[in-house]
């Protein structure tokens, strides 16, 4: 297991705050999202129901997010990943599926503060207006030139991208949130 941060918990203060946070345990689970066995596996590992289209379910720190018609992202404590994979293998034995520990594949950032929506809206082709994007939705998109996914929780936005582009993503976010850069579009 590698370090859970890539940039040493880098932080930038602007009209929104950007900080790298330790990557939690993340499991990519592909399979038939409508099957009862998969629902049981997701429930056993996260306490969450299988998320509906583009939704993310949360049960405490554990989450289950919809990534594709045949894929969910399960977020658990990092130390719980091996047990979670064993549980999934057991619940889905005999059913075609794939479960992979992708914790070390990703970097995770938090955007916080009143300008968080606006900073992100500069970088992604997504309507981030209040009402158009709200807690409970998980959006996969791009952040300038790299793929990313994000959702709102606890008064901020959590964003994940590939670990290999962590520096690029952090610099983008820090630049978009830089002091003096507020547009007030959602104000």
């Amino acid at each position: 297991m590698s370090d859970a941060t890539v940039l040493g918990a880098a932080q930038a203060e602007g009209f929104a705050t950007v900080r790298e946070v330790p990557a939690p345990g993340m499991i990519a689970l592909k399979g038939d999202l409508s099957s009862p066995a998969l629902a049981e596996a997701v429930r056993a590992v996260t306490g969450c129901a299988v998320p509906g289209l583009r939704r993310i379910e949360a049960a405490g720190p554990a989450c289950a997010g919809w990534m594709a018609p045949d894929e969910v992202l399960l977020i658990v404590q990092r130390g719980d990943v091996p047990a979670a994979l064993a549980t999934i293998a057991e619940r889905l034995s005999g059913a075609h599926h794939l479960a992979a520990d992708v914790s070390d594949m990703r970097a995770v950032f938090r955007l916080e503060g009143a300008g968080a929506r606006e900073a992100l809206a500069k970088l992604a082709p997504v309507d981030l207006a209040p009402g158009a994007f709200e807690p409970g939705e998980l959006r996969r998109t791009r952040l300038a030139q790299v793929p990313a996914a994000f959702w709102m929780e606890e008064g901020g936005i959590t964003l994940v991208c590939f670990r290999s582009v962590a520096r690029y993503a952090f610099d983008l976010l820090a630049g978009a949130a830089a002091p003096g850069g507020a547009v007030g579009h959602f104000a």
Partner: peptide, 11 residues
Amino acid sequence: PHCGIDADETE
């Protein structure tokens, strides 16, 4: 048609 997003060409 898979996820329902009105995707901008850049996605």
